[in-house]
Design a protein around this nucleic acid. Sequence first.
DNA 1: GACAAAAATTTAATCGTTTAAATAAAACTA
DNA 2: TAGTTTTATTTAAACGATTAAATTTTTGTC
Lengths: 330, 330
Amino acid sequence: MAKKILLKDIAEEVGVSIALVSYVLNNKKTDKINPNTSKKILETARKKKYVPNRIAQSLKASKTFTIGLIVADISNFFYSYIARHIEEEANRYNYNVLYGSAYEDPERFRKILQVMLSRQVDGLILAIPDGAEDCIPELKRMKLPFVVIDRQFPQYKNYMRVSLDNYNASRKVMEMFISKGACRPGAIGLKTNLSHLQERKQGFTETARKFLPANSIFSYEVNESRMETEMAELVKKAVLQDRVDALCFFTNKIAMAGLPHLLKHKIKIPERLQVICFDETNAYNLFPYPLVYVKQPLEEMSKLAVRCLIDENQKAKTGVYKFDGELISL
Amino acid sequence: MAKKILLKDIAEEVGVSIALVSYVLNNKKTDKINPNTSKKILETARKKKYVPNRIAQSLKASKTFTIGLIVADISNFFYSYIARHIEEEANRYNYNVLYGSAYEDPERFRKILQVMLSRQVDGLILAIPDGAEDCIPELKRMKLPFVVIDRQFPQYKNYMRVSLDNYNASRKVMEMFISKGACRPGAIGLKTNLSHLQERKQGFTETARKFLPANSIFSYEVNESRMETEMAELVKKAVLQDRVDALCFFTNKIAMAGLPHLLKHKIKIPERLQVICFDETNAYNLFPYPLVYVKQPLEEMSKLAVRCLIDENQKAKTGVYKFDGELISL
DNA sequence: GACAAAAATTTAATCGTTTAAATAAAACTA
DNA sequence: TAGTTTTATTTAAACGATTAAATTTTTGTC
């Protein structure tokens, strides 16, 4: 590293104190500074390409202008899209984003969280994995602002969260299935305790029960870690054995794993099988049959999450936001 | 924010100096510290959940253990996948990743770069947009370690870069087209000066010329910003008007925009049209026809980029790495 | 029990800023 | 021309850690 230009260097060159340089560059005390001195300082700073050391500033101010973002997996479209909008909104407030992927591993999550705390982030946006939810009371005790996205943990109250209204979204899914004549609807979810996925399942099943007998409603679950291998069997069971005539994939990852098998079995969509997927991705455009998907307003949700941390007006509010999913037909 | 625990707090509780607490917690001078004192300090630190302030450490050490990553767009699968592996590898060395998206805008890129410099990142991994390449000599002058990924700028020498061997990858694409009987091959690229895309075009065209007359080789270009709208026309022109019998999409984004139009026109693939796309994505699995794609070894490339910045052994080397693309048939 | 050596701990400077308070210089007042 | 204001600038402490050097305490030796 070449020597960096410090306030000291500018001060020496101009022949004034470091403090004065700082005042000028920060536009403080402007009324009491000799315009000539001011001009000289400004010029020298530009000439030497002075870049303030944010680390020193952060230490002094006890504020880093950094938001920590922990997602499950940044290479998952769902989270990378969120990350994009979080960064955009954060930038608007001159904040930056430090990010980490926990891969649904609570231990990893805790470790990343610890690192973010040690780096003095001003706030956190978290997709908490199953088993790491005890960070919620802990963070509250520390009074560090945080927002939980995507997920929620009903055992804890009074924490900020931004998520889809999952129950209602699933209800809409089922209602569309029914309205188009489904008699044996099914859904594929994840083996997990995460309540947002439980809610999707509940909304789906409970709505179905209003219209159909219990033995013609189907529900399947795959292991997050063995999705690729289990999916082949599961789709076969659902479509060929249980003969479901409507199938919902509860996450985009499940959809991406499941849809190819529908292709393989040459299932006619939507005549033989209606399909609805959660989450939006342009990958669906490569699928040769009409798909329906649940669009989450990710951009708004992401931006709101950032504002919950940064914006004083927003902060004041209660901080529990549920967004409506929208069914989009391709 | 609740009051944070500092070394001072531990020192006061145990009744020793701050320095001693620091020595103990950092395992320095271990041989000269009273084991009893040491134990007391360690216990108190744990009891009070002391978390060292990395900002203060960074200031003192002039080292932040942070890598800055600037990509075009984190929500583009190509970059989010890279980001994932960069983060993983960085974590292995106890580094964290500060990231930014420049959206191919040189101004935005410069601004983000400036912020990263002010945040004293220890190194940078950059996908530099067309028009911002003058950062290369500048960063070299500053002697801040940086690695350029994906792209390259032949007008500059002696900077670290990790990328695909684009010329060769395109050559392979064309050779496969030819070997399968293509007579009128075409490719869709981007209107850009970025040399890695120029190389893809060159490799493609120059290889084609060895086998075919110039008037049966086709090349198209879309505007990055108007891809969706232009693509409809372009595909129609290529496939229906120019009647190409082999089509290469030079980036995954172009492929994602172009493939749906092939579906729309019910083009028979590969009988009527062979298709090869750059980059890997599981979205291709939703496409009902056999696709071939150029797989870049993104994981290795990402990890190497990180090691170029961090690893002393790696650093010593020349720092120009070209990776081979691999044709994968789905 | 005096002195040296070894062990244990503390002092104080430092990293690069910010900023309240002190001071110096210039301008005004009577 | 001394005193007061106003303007301009500097001093010094602080942020929270690290660490070389200094100091104190303990132990060992003859």
